[in-house]
Design a protein around this nucleic acid. Sequence first.
DNA 1: TTTAAAAAAGGGGGAATCCCCCAATTTTTA
DNA 2: TAAAAATTGGGGGATTCCCCCTTTTTTAAA
Lengths: 210, 210
Amino acid sequence: MKYSVVVVDDHFLLSQAIGGLVQDFKNFEVLYLCSNGSELLEKLKDSANIPDIVLMDIKMPILNGIETTEILKNKFPTIKVLALSIEEDEYTILKMLRAGAKGYLMKDTKKDILEEALMGLVQNGQYYTNTVSQILVDSLDKDVDTEIKPKEFEFIKLACTDMNYKEIAEAMYCSYKTVEGYRDSLYRKLGIRNRIGLVLFAIHHNLFTP
Amino acid sequence: MKYSVVVVDDHFLLSQAIGGLVQDFKNFEVLYLCSNGSELLEKLKDSANIPDIVLMDIKMPILNGIETTEILKNKFPTIKVLALSIEEDEYTILKMLRAGAKGYLMKDTKKDILEEALMGLVQNGQYYTNTVSQILVDSLDKDVDTEIKPKEFEFIKLACTDMNYKEIAEAMYCSYKTVEGYRDSLYRKLGIRNRIGLVLFAIHHNLFTP
DNA sequence: TTTAAAAAAGGGGGAATCCCCCAATTTTTA
DNA sequence: TAAAAATTGGGGGATTCCCCCTTTTTTAAA
């Protein structure tokens, strides 16, 4: 009996191709492919469509990988999610693991590693590369004072547009000075010195997708 | 006799997988895979390694797809390049086509289309989707006064860091006022109003990769 | 439940930077 | 040699940055 695998990725070519790779593995077979999270949830309404493993991309339209994994954790706890992302980013990996992913494969993954990871998932319930383990260790002492608050998060997204602070204040229904407060607080705790730095930070940590 | 195909992409999983798809096509076979442009050029030094078609990613480390295609056009004019990119972007597509690519496939491409495109390349020497044709038509009247000059291009890349204009001027070995000139000229012809807008423009048009 | 501490929101003011107009000079191109 | 383009510059208003501060609200602890 082979373990069933579902690939969720909005890049048709990639999901089709990954499906092909998985189909070659002797212990695994592809159940079906989805192009985003909500399509997967739709499929899962039929209990015949519940796979052992979901290979999940993170950046997807409509319902992204983190949100989808969160939902799966609650509604289908038997399904193991393996994150499979083009971009490697500490923040994103952490968010994905917190959401319930049992492993995370980077873009430089080779075919053998994919099979090894799938076997790790069914045998040990997880598969963590050295990189991911290191990130987990690093995150222990780091995330405490670097936590970004909801209002600051909202500010960051607006700061990543060409609006000036006066306009941002109007958009956030608060005073200009409050907006400056969010900015200064972020500059201090993120160690950046101007708005370009903030935009770059936001992009690198997937707080904002251009 | 099958047509030989080389896949150039820094995403191992993707290139391996695309290679698998191509291998399934009855008229095509994979010669080898490369992870960036300079690796391809190294391979091509041996004349036994010259393929009929190169499937080329655009964003790659060391030597990107546009630069690589430009070199191929001069040194190996018999090789047909099919751009195969995750991101779809007018500017990038145009640059890739100007560099000599004979076609461009978007991320939502399905397996059949890939085969169709490969056949188009060997039979007609090109394969253009409707989207690409439309972009070509649009570009005719648009690109004239929107051309970005080399110095401006250099400025853009520095403007996408947290340096201020004084520092950028030092980095470019010119006066502060010259830098302001580049900035103002770009703002005018790109229709943007501040530096964040410039950064966003640069990202959207792949002039700068965060 | 009261109290103390922490966080959020708002504010003043000054220095630095950014934006945008104009003009002069030098270099390149036709 | 004249025209076009690139470079440099002045000046000034707008915006951003970065300190200082007070008031209000939320949270946590005694």
